[in-house]
Structure formats: C-alpha cells, structure tokens
Amino acid sequence: MNDYLQTYHPNLRRTPHLYHQSEFGIHFSLGDDLSPLNDVDGINNDYFQLVYQQAMTIFDELFHPDDELIWVTNMYKSKYEKKNVRPLKVYQPYLKDKRALYRLHVHTYPYPFENDEEGDEMQQFSLNCKRNDIRILPLLKSAIHEDFPLKPRFGGYAIGYPDVLFVNTTKNVTFFLYDDRGCEVTSLNADTIRPLYETYKSWIAEYDRQDIEERLRIK
C-alpha cells in the first residue's frame, strides 16, 4: 500500500476528501435530492434503494473482475481508552474467503483531522485483493448506513465510524463512498474518468460541475 501510493499518489493522504487532494477527480452527489427520512416509518426506502443502485453502478464502472485493488479502511480510536471499543468488523463479513485476512496490513498514524482531544489516532488497514474476492453490495450498503439505524453496518472504534476506500491499482483510480450523500472518484489522468463524468453527470451537483469540468479538461 505505502509503496504503491508513494509511487503513484505521493500527495494522497489516504483520508476523506480525496477529491480536494487530487488534480483529477469527480464528486458525485447521490440520492437525487430525495430525503432519507419520511413521515410514515422514519426511513425512506426509495431513497436508500436509489443510493444503493447509484453507488453500485459507479463501482461497477471503475472495478472490473480482474482488476487488482487495495481495500483500505481507516479506523479512528483513542490511544488510551480501552472500554467500549468494538472490534474491527469491516473485512471479515464481506470477504468471500476468510483466509485473505492473513494478508491484512495495519499502520498507525496521527489523527488526521482537527481535534480538541489529545490521544486520538488513525489505524489504517489495507488488503490487496480482487473485486471478486468481496461481497461488494453489502459492503457499500454498510458505508451508506453510517448515520442511520440500518443493517448491515461496520463495526468500529468508539470515536468514529470507519472510512472505507478502494484503490484500483490496474487503472490507478480511487473510489471513496463516504456515506449516503455521495462518493469521490480520483485518477492519475483525466482521460480515465472523463467517460464516467459524461455518462453520470446528472448525479453531480450543479455547484460542483464547473470545477469538475475544469479538472477533467472538458470544454
């Protein structure tokens, strides 16, 4: 993971807001301005079904069965707090072959965000695998469910929900579904992701469109 990023993404911090770290990127807004909540049972199922479909469509465009990828998870935790810490449950439920867990790497970094509390840190897990090794849709749903009492969900540490992103090392593309509101796609060159923009530009907020078109050299 570190060797790959140093070679191909030396300025990428491997944390949220990838779009703002990269020269070439797209920010998709999901849900088509629907509300995730309704007045009947609280959860708008139509909204979530749409977000599932949009996220899966973008993932399918970026990751083909034989592509090599790195599945990255950022877990945020206290260095000192040992109580009420849930175990890591991001890889095991979604891996088809649990033996792949032996290839999981972990590195610890300082907490990457502004924070008034001392003693927090980020543990970053990474796994080299292929798309077909993963139960993709349940995994994407877990990312989408971050702010809602819906299942499936990730297990994580007490101070924050884990962030999951994917690096396609075959195409040099990165995908980060941050929650139900949207996802970020970055690339080493504009040509790789320009067709994605052209096909799904209706999923991009109007206020983002000009910036993205400038990044992707769209006239």
Rank of each mutant, 00 (worst) to 15 (best):
191 D>V: 10
175 F>W: 10
31 G>F: 03
42 G>Y: 07
9 H>Y: 12
7 T>D: 03
9 H>R: 14
82 K>Q: 13
160 G>T: 07
197 Y>P: 00
127 L>S: 02
76 Y>I: 12
169 T>N: 06
191 D>S: 11
136 I>M: 10
137 L>C: 05
57 T>K: 14
110 P>A: 15
28 F>E: 10
179 D>T: 05
74 N>T: 06
73 T>V: 15
57 T>V: 13
23 E>A: 14
154 F>Y: 14
89 K>L: 15
177 L>K: 03
147 D>S: 09
151 K>C: 09
192 T>G: 00
179 D>Q: 07
188 L>N: 10
218 I>K: 01
10 P>E: 01
147 D>V: 02
150 L>G: 00
167 V>F: 14
6 Q>D: 08
57 T>Y: 02
187 S>A: 14
50 L>Q: 09
64 H>K: 15
171 K>M: 13
18 L>P: 03
169 T>C: 06
184 E>W: 02
39 D>N: 14
217 R>Q: 08
190 A>K: 11
39 D>T: 13
182 G>R: 01
72 V>D: 04
139 L>H: 00
161 Y>K: 08
184 E>D: 04
152 P>H: 09
192 T>S: 09
121 E>N: 08
174 T>H: 01
70 I>A: 04
121 E>P: 09
83 K>R: 12
26 I>V: 09
128 N>F: 06
84 N>T: 07
195 P>G: 05
54 Q>W: 04
18 L>N: 06
156 G>T: 05
10 P>K: 02
114 E>Y: 13
145 H>P: 01
42 G>S: 09
1 M>S: 04
89 K>Y: 02
139 L>P: 01
160 G>R: 11
182 G>P: 03
6 Q>N: 14
199 T>E: 02
44 N>K: 06
71 W>Y: 08
118 E>Y: 11
197 Y>R: 11
35 S>I: 06
48 F>G: 02
193 I>S: 03
171 K>E: 15
187 S>L: 07
56 M>L: 15
204 I>K: 06
101 L>C: 05
164 V>C: 06
11 N>H: 12
155 G>A: 10
179 D>H: 08
7 T>I: 11
183 C>T: 03
74 N>L: 11
46 D>C: 05
55 A>M: 08
17 H>R: 15
20 H>M: 15
98 K>S: 10
208 D>Q: 11
13 R>S: 13
168 N>C: 08
150 L>D: 00
104 L>E: 02
63 F>G: 05
32 D>F: 01
123 Q>W: 06
91 Y>V: 08
204 I>F: 02
210 Q>H: 04
89 K>V: 10
140 L>Y: 01
42 G>P: 00
192 T>H: 00
88 L>S: 02
114 E>F: 14
47 Y>K: 00
187 S>D: 04
